[in-house]
């Protein structure tokens, strides 16, 4: 079993972070720029030393080792391919530095070229490759020495949208095929949701929540997480009762709905709940739990966003898929009611 735990105290960029990354998982550090996610990654790689705390790999403290002494490889944001070497020499660089015999290097390089679909390009200078191809060389170069952990520092940010989508699939496939632990850094929530087994959402040097993509999206623990990932509605509510892992809350309209709450919290008094726009439905007045006036309809092709001015203040967004072709059946300034599906509301910690 392999796990990394880190404690960083009083570090400017990373403030007292403890994380356990499991073996063979695709783990993502997600957060806005400046949240410390890249610093964290660089400490695993060895380019930065933690002021306090430890980086443990399989129970061994590696936090004071030089980058070349750690069985960890990095895919850099700008790829950092060696411009004076060919594709094959780039991929074989790590093994060559480890002093592996030439025959072994050649066969690994061949396998790697195949793995990233660059067969026959081994003798090309890397400077002649396209952005997507360079990206794949960078991946192959980092995977070739079979590291215990592969670190990826926003490697897709320089690619255009289409290429980025196909590289997301590619990365996930590589991770499954090689069985290597991937630690991926990104500020793109969609990237994180698509690829990860687990996500750590970071903000201002601290980890706000760790969980599966579903946990992070559907069961955000706090306002920052809910706000950062996707679109969401925040509602003020009063806790009526708590039973098991559910709580009854009363909305401003007086209606009661059931809501889940994060671990380690006993909801009471005034709380904030979140409801995703796609988890609510629009209906005729009186049919739902919140009443209001339809303020704006935004047509997005695949679905409509209904901006509802809720009686008693605030705006609530409802998102409905355009399953059928034709008008949506509602018009602006109409009085409507919002129904909230069961078990979709989540109480926030803060």
């Amino acid at each position: 079993m392999h796990g990394i735990k880190k404690w960083f105290g009083t570090f400017q960029a990373v403030d007292d972070v403890t994380l356990e990354i499991r073996s063979n998982e695709f783990f993502t550090l997600l957060g806005p720029s400046g949240c410390g996610k890249t610093t964290l990654l660089r400490m695993i790689a060895g380019f930065e030393l933690p002021t306090e705390g430890q980086v443990l790999l399989d129970g061994t403290d590696i936090s004071r080792l030089l980058p070349n002494q750690r069985p960890v490889n990095t895919v850099f944001q700008n790829y950092a391919l060696f411009p004076h070497l060919t594709v094959a020499e780039n991929i074989g660089f790590g093994l060559k530095m480890l002093g592996k015999p030439k025959s072994e290097i050649d066969s690994v390089v061949k396998d790697m070229l195949k793995l990233v679909h660059l067969e026959g390009r081994g003798n090309n200078p890397v400077t002649q490759l396209s952005g997507g191809q360079q990206q794949r060389v960078a991946l192959a170069r980092a995977l070739a020495p079979r590291p215990k952990v592969l670190l990826l520092d926003e490697p897709l940010s320089a690619l255009d949208l289409k290429l980025r989508k196909s590289m997301q699939m590619e990365l996930k496939r590589l991770q499954l095929e090689t069985g290597i632990t991937f630690v991926f850094v990104t500020h793109d929530q969609e990237e994180a949701l698509t690829m990860s087994d687990r996500i750590a959402v970071m903000s201002t040097g601290t980890v706000r929540q760790v969980g599966s993509p579903w946990d992070i999206y559907d069961r955000p623990a706090e306002r920052f997480v809910a706000d950062f990932i996707g679109e969401t509605n925040f509602l003020e509510a009063d806790v009526v009762s708590v039973s098991g892992d559910r709580a009854r809350v009363r909305l401003s309209s007086g209606a009661e709905i059931s809501a889940t709450y994060p671990d380690g919290v006993t909801p009471k008094g005034k709380v904030t709940i979140v409801v995703r726009p796609e988890h609510a439905r629009l209906g005729p007045p009186g049919s739902g739990v919140l009443e209001g006036v339809l303020d704006d309809i935004v047509y997005l092709g695949t679905d409509n966003h209904f901006h509802v001015k809720v009686d008693g203040g605030g705006t609530f967004i409802v998102r409905q898929q355009n399953a059928k072709s034709g008008p949506c059946g509602f018009s602006e300034q109409e009085r409507v009611s919002i129904a909230i599906n069961d078990d979709v509301a989540q109480i926030l910690r803060d």
Partner: peptide, 27 residues
């Protein structure tokens, strides 16, 4: 020179001398 090249070399198990010999010097 792009500093991340030297960083990449050390990430790929090159000692500081090897980094100089195989990356910095040729460039």
């Amino acid at each position: 020179m792009d500093l991340s090249l030297e960083r990449a070399a050390s990430d790929l198990y090159a000692s500081s001398f090897q980094t100089f010999r195989y990356v910095t010097l040729p460039l």
